[in-house]
Design a binder for these strands. Structure first.
Lengths: 345, 345
DNA sequence: TTCCTTTGCGCAATCGATTGTGCAGCTTAT
DNA sequence: ATAAGCTGCACAATCGATTGCGCAAAGGAA
């Protein structure tokens, strides 16, 4: 019942605990253990179902073999995709992933990072923190390597989507395909969703305005509504836009999938032709959104590349606040198969 | 740079390490430590940014304060929803969630469970394992309490969706709303997706057949196609059905969201009226699928209740292979708001 | 004053591994 | 034959906390 330890195996094999340890953790060549001894010990270990106590090893080595990641929430296409990639990468290196969600609460963020540190994680990936500075400080104080993913950190390296480029592509498609409406109130495209305090949203708004300006379309503050990420708020924002303009705008830049949910909810109050008569683009990708009754351009962030680059940075030992940008993909309407990642369902 | 320990604080405060330990872990009342001593030690600890080394504590206590969960993949609405609930539950108890994905690989499953055990997790939630028996054995050998979620375990308690009931409701809606087609080849509803080795799929097929039989509809083996979970396979299966029958069947029971993706992909080859002219039901829920141009009934599994019941069982100390069923919710078409869980996006 | 409690805290063992060092015994070279 | 070197392993300290036990000093009762 009580788990077997190297001491038990030492007793049973007549060897010393240090020899057993070396055999079982693979360092026995360095210690010049005879092959016969190795075999004996491995046999006994197997017979007794020995399993390493990683807390003991970790205590001695001052590292746990775990790698932490914090995300705002699991229940989201983009972040769960990040999780999946992270999980795969970490496990491929023989380490154990620990992913915790913060619900975008700064206190939770600090608490989780502290917890991870107290478990002596080898390093930490921080995705979508609302308050990056203090997290960096916590990690730095503990000497834990860390990297920001999807948002730029001030005092540590970060890997982010090229939000400007993604929004540029998306806005370009919206402008290229939206109808030319004679009603001036509806002729200009709108940007909806996200938070102004959000780095990603800032960059996307910037690109949206720039592309519009380049086509000679003047965007007013009224055309840009960073109303947060909640579907209900997005729905209300769209209702306002609709009422003020007497209809949907010719183009709609939807800043996230949850915002899109709110937009769709509002659409249920309209005639089916109305959404179909404008051009919609959504930043972030969902396969079902690709099958709505009107075409939607979408941007899919490249979570594989984000995690891969982040890992590169950590493994290079870089700790300076460099920033790497990863270009996202523009997804044409109705292309679920050609571009969807493998999903084992 | 080197982290402060209770020994450092003991030296600085003039107290003994055991006193410092008691103060910092909150058990000082039991040890009758003076309030003044407590205050001094806490002050010094705060000044030096002391953080607990949980590996040391864990080694001594033979438990880590972590709770493990394994899931097939993160990148899936149902499992990421389970993850979110699990995360919230575990953290609410002051513990640390560790969620790892197995990609439905039995070897991976065993490896991960072993790893979790070697980290001395307090307990393990097993969601969606392909080979439950060996996992139970591993946990039992290590004396780690565990519970199966979403699939029944043989030697341990489990909490599963009431797949029969869910499929019963869904089939009921499909039959109630599907058109009566004179073409006999197309008159019977079809069941598509999932794996026959899968407990959940078995139960759902059972209910599908039973409800059909109750309405006097005779189902042949040809009407039931458990073609797996991959979108591509589902697409091919639907193409076959379409060709053999000369059109879509009047009713379609889609056994998972990824299968639905494949179905939709195949729909793009049809005229838009065709899917709209039949009745579709999907086991599992996606908000965007609720906004397609034809109404879809969906079943949403109750991940909150699944995790809550699983936790109840673990906390009750139950280790016998009891099985608890949780009823899923039937979601009417276009009701994204009334029923969707809060999603902070 | 003497004895008994209670208060407040220290001592030292312990959890299970890792790792720097030491040292017999056997080889090989000279 | 002696020194030098190599082989194969054991010893013991160490990581940082927790915890059973013990004991001096203070307080109270008789």
């Amino acid at each position: 019942m009580t788990k077997t330890t190297i001491y038990d195996i030492a007793r049973l094999s007549g060897a010393s605990p240090s020899t057993v340890s070396a055999v079982l953790n693979g360092t026995w060549r360095k210690r010049r253990i005879r092959d016969a001894t190795v075999a004996t010990i491995q046999k006994i270990a197997a017979e007794h179902g020995y399993t390493l106590n990683r807390q003991a090893r970790g205590l001695r080595q001052a590292r746990s073999g775990m790698v932490g990641m914090i995300i705002p929430l699991h229940d989201n296409r983009f972040f769960s995709s990040l999780s999946q990639t992270f999980d795969t990468f970490v496990r491929a290196r023989g380490l154990c992933p620990v992913i915790a969600s913060t619900l975008r609460d700064p206190d939770e963020e600090r608490r989780i990072v502290s917890t991870l540190i107290s478990y002596a994680v080898d390093s930490i990936f921080i995705a979508g923190a609302t308050d990056a500075g203090p997290l960096s400080d916590l990690c730095a104080a503990a000497g834990v390597p860390h990297v920001f993913v999807d948002l730029p950190g001030r005092n540590a390296p970060s890997v982010v989507s090229d939000n400007y480029r993604g929004a540029e592509m998306l806005t370009g498609q919206i402008l290229a395909h939206m109808p030319r409406l004679s009603d001036l109130r509806r002729a200009r495209p709108c940007f909806i969703g996200g938070s102004e305090r959000d780095y990603a949203t800032q960059r996307r708004m910037e690109a949206f305005r720039a592309v519009c300006a380049a086509r000679g379309i003047e965007i007013s503050d009224d055309d840009v509504q960073p109303c947060g990420y909640a579907p209900a708020a997005a729905r209300a924002a769209l209702r306002d836009i609709y009422q003020r303009r007497g209809g949907l705008p010719a183009g709609l830049f939807v800043n996230s999938l949850t915002v899109f949910e709110g937009v769709l909810a509002q659409f249920t109050e309209l005639k089916a032709e109305e959404p179909a008569a404008i051009q919609i683009g959504c930043y972030d990708y969902d396969p079902f959104a690709a099958f709505l009754h009107f075409p939607v351009y979408m941007v899919r962030q490249n979570s594989d590349a984000l995690i891969a680059r982040a890992y590169d940075i950590l493994e290079s030992g870089e700790t300076a606040p460099v920033m790497i940008e990863v270009e996202p993909d523009l997804i044409e309407p109705r292309t679920v198969f050609q571009n969807a990642p493998m999903n084992l369902g």
